[in-house]
Amino acid sequence: MKTARAIQLSLTLLLPLLICGCGQDISSVKKAIRGHWVSESGKVNQYFGEGTWIQNDGGREMEFSYTITETNEAMGTLKMSLKNATGAGHEKEIRFSTDRKTMIHTFILGSARVDSKYNYVDTKERP
């Protein structure tokens, strides 16, 4: 009887911790970027893992390695350098909303800059 009660009490205390511990880590911009993001149109999915970025755009998939080159916690921004398997690459700037559930993603190639808005979906780091 005591064992059953102890198990029930343990589950009651641990279940909320397990549920809360499965979401996005927003303790820093480096951690907040990790996971699955979807464009406002719903057509582009991005997955950020540890040093890996995958974009799926209507069935076309691209994978790059990335290095974070600059962060600004107060402004909620980061910059990264990306390279594909052949060594070709580009730069990105990310600006997070205050709650870090939305980001403005700026693609930079030479002098060209394109902004896109993405919303956080889940912790998946691969499609």
Rank of each mutant, 00 (worst) to 15 (best):
G49M: 00
T12P: 04
V44K: 11
T52P: 04
S10Y: 12
N45K: 11
V44F: 08
T52A: 09
D57E: 15
A32L: 03
I26R: 11
L14G: 01
L9S: 12
Y47R: 00
V38F: 07
G49Y: 01
I54R: 13
A32D: 07
L15R: 03
S28L: 07
G35R: 07
G51V: 12
L17W: 04
V44N: 08
L17V: 13
W37C: 09
I54M: 14
G35P: 03
S28C: 08
D57F: 14
G35Y: 10
K43I: 10
C22G: 08
G42W: 07
V44H: 02
G21V: 03
I19H: 00
G42K: 07
L15N: 04
S39V: 07
L13V: 09
Q46C: 13
G21K: 01
G23A: 10
S39M: 08
L17S: 02
G42F: 05
E40T: 15
Q55P: 01
E40W: 05
Y47S: 06
Q55A: 12
S28N: 02
S41G: 13
S39D: 13
Y47G: 09
V29Y: 09
N56F: 07
G51Y: 06
I33A: 09
S10L: 15
E40F: 08
N45A: 12
Q55C: 13
G35E: 06
P16E: 01
G21T: 02
E40Y: 01
L18C: 02
N45M: 09
K43Y: 09
I33G: 03
L18F: 12
L9Y: 04
G23T: 11
T52C: 08
V44W: 06
G49H: 03
V38Y: 02
S10G: 12
G42A: 02
L15Y: 07
S28Y: 04
W37R: 05
L9P: 00
S41D: 15
N45D: 14
K31H: 08
I33P: 03
N56V: 06
F48E: 06
W53Y: 15
T52M: 14
